[in-house]
Amino acid sequence: MRLLVIEDDPLIARSLEHALQPLGNTVDMFCTYAEAQAALAHDRFDLILLDLGLPDGEGLDLLASLRDRGDTTPVLILTARDGVDDRVSGLDLGADDYLAKPFSLAELEARVRALLRRSQQRSDNRLRFSTLSFDPTSGTATLDDTPLALPRRELLLLEGLLLHAGSIAPRETLERRLFGFDDVGSNALEVYVSRLRKRLQNSGLKIRTFRGLGYRLEEDREPGRAEGPEDETA
């Protein structure tokens, strides 16, 4: 995993380097537009962290030229400007995520992880999250490399959750994936979610419910702790 960080502030650059290195990544640091452009011309990266206010150019221009070349490398924009226009034009130009300074390193790490996962999926064409893996071409899922035999709807649900791995899979999206446009009861999805939950018990993974929003596949960091949302009350 190669990361490219384009950031002109040395203090932030250093802390970014320190924060990202432990994730098991190679981190290349550049602090000017020109250097970054040169690097992008020669090498391929798995993720780019881009600061918008560079001393010799606009980060957004760099992003635009990248996308014009057809390069789909995920880009996370970092900026002190929390102006809305920046956000909109950044996303319009094809940035994958956006983080306003000041940010907490925890937030940064979470987002980087999500983007990297996506990048990786793109490379080996398999959906992965932690020990869970799904091959969309064969339609098979494995947990700890052990094949998981799942009914069709649960498989579809798993795929849906994995597609959004690390972030919330909206309920409507999942419903459409499972049931098409059929009119189903409001509890129908919940039934399949609880079935899948049972199968994932003690796998170090859990499905968290977000009221009114959807579900998220996440690592069960504190397996001993009982959390309210996991109660099947919804």
Binding site: S104, A106, E107, G212, L213, P229
Partner: peptide
């Protein structure tokens, strides 16, 4: 709400949407 619920700061809260 979807954006905020997915954030790290909201991990320990039950942030949700009513019908």
């Amino acid at each position: 709400v979807l954006d905020w619920a997915g954030r790290e700061v909201a991990r320990d809260h039950d942030l949700g949407l009513a019908e």
